[in-house]
Design a protein around this nucleic acid. Structure first.
Lengths: 232, 232
DNA sequence: AAGGGGATGAAAAACAGGTGAAACCGCCTG
DNA sequence: CAGGCGGTTTCACCTGTTTTTCATCCCCTT
């Protein structure tokens, strides 16, 4: 399932490579080059991150320092630290600061991905597979949706964005969700803030459901947002 | 839920952008370019602010100085300070002065919004939930009103302005509220002062209630104002 | 009786969101 | 490496709702 990841790395080239790889894995990535901004971004609650990848050496607020702050604020967000030094003394410092895992540069991208998966599995609230709301059953691993109907059920395979969107809706059933919230939670903060991606994607999702003969569970609440209504 | 926000920022362009974003979120915004005016505006009773966004560097009364004065006067109004990166070394000064949070320029507008939400949640009297007066029950999150009746109850969904207006009435039950006060509390001080938005909006609200078969709890006290009377 | 503030209905303006076509992009395949 | 493909985003335009304005009208106060 796609994760929301904060990457804090000041070497532009490495950062770019990591972003590309993570995005290819369908993750939503925000990138910052310095620690103070990361700190404020996480505190701001603009987006809910599932993981932070933090370089050891950063201008301003260093990686371990950022980590310490996070822990100090009571946040359990998994942190994967990147360090250029195989130095064990640093390792201890980092663990003290509250990092969850280490990767020593240079590393293979495959290993980064593996570490991320491992870290996620270790999460206490690690959501094993399915998400259910009313007759809707979402399987992020297969990225497909199964809907119970009066007779039998329908199975629909979803694209990455459709999955993310529907997952967010299903995690907040019946709640009025402003378009702007979907925007900040499901799209990287870096891209153009004036665009109607959200409306467009909602439309695609609605249309896909409709094309399978299902009634749309997503209603629009005029100038307030969208609402996912599991029961008809 | 919409907030009343005072923005004190002397860079015209940034100020404009911030205003636009906040207004898009339904907040009511007043903008000033210097600290002294802000000080007097907050002390005056023209409007009651839920939040002040204050630039660090201001002509006349500086941000921290304004902050200190507010605290000195015993006001607990949350203050979000904007600082240029160069001023971050002064952070401690700002905290001393009594600011509640910081944002380092440049920042993403989305982040500003998130900080504002976080700040509100931190408020001691933070009332996420419901507002009640007599048989009227207002739910800002759902932006709907539920009215208890002899038999059963009626649920009405409200638009943004209707919600703000009714909330204000319900917070001041039985009180005679001059139209001008609604005007200054619920509309930005900047827009055209000669217009009958208030009367028009009161009318819309009354009409909406009437259309659901409810007696109007809002009466007009000739040339004095309006009164919200929860019990019939 | 005059004047002012509010009430009213219609219309305009402002806005959010919906829509289809087209562009774009990474990826796979021939 | 070109071409095709599915997924995603953008664009320009359309629609429906909310909010404000405007031009009266009404009624209470002075």
């Amino acid at each position: 399932m796609p994760l929301r990841i904060l990457l804090v790395e000041d070497e532009a080239e490495l950062a770019g490579a990591i972003q590309a790889v993570l995005r290819a894995e369908q993750h939503i990535v925000d990138h910052l080059a310095e620690g103070l901004g990361a700190w404020s971004l996480i505190r701001g609650e603009l987006a809910t991150y599932n993981l932070a990848i933090v370089d050891w050496m950063l201008p301003g607020l260093s990686g371990p320092e950022l980590c310490r702050r996070l822990r100090g604020a009571g946040l359990t967000l998994p942190v994967l630290m990147l360090t250029a030094l195989a130095d064990t003394s640093h390792r201890v410092q980092g663990l003290d600061a509250g990092a969850d895992d280490y990767l020593i540069k240079p590393f293979a991208m495959e290993e980064l991905l593996a570490r991320i998966r491992a870290l996620q599995r270790r999460q206490p609230n690690y959501r094993e597979l399915l998400l259910r709301a009313g007759p809707y059953l979402l399987d992020p691993a297969e990225s497909c949706l199964t809907v119970q109907e009066a007779v039998g059920s329908t199975r629909i395979t979803l694209s990455a964005k459709e999955l993310q969107l529907l997952a967010y809706f299903m995690e907040h059933p019946r709640e009025i969700i402003p378009g702007a919230r979907l925007r900040s939670q499901l799209w990287s903060l870096e891209d153009d803030p004036i665009s109607n991606v959200v409306a467009a994607q909602v439309r695609l999702l609605r249309r896909k459901l409709a094309s399978h003969g299902l009634p749309s569970p997503i209603e629009t609440v005029a100038s307030k947002g969208y609402r996912f209504e599991p029961e008809p």
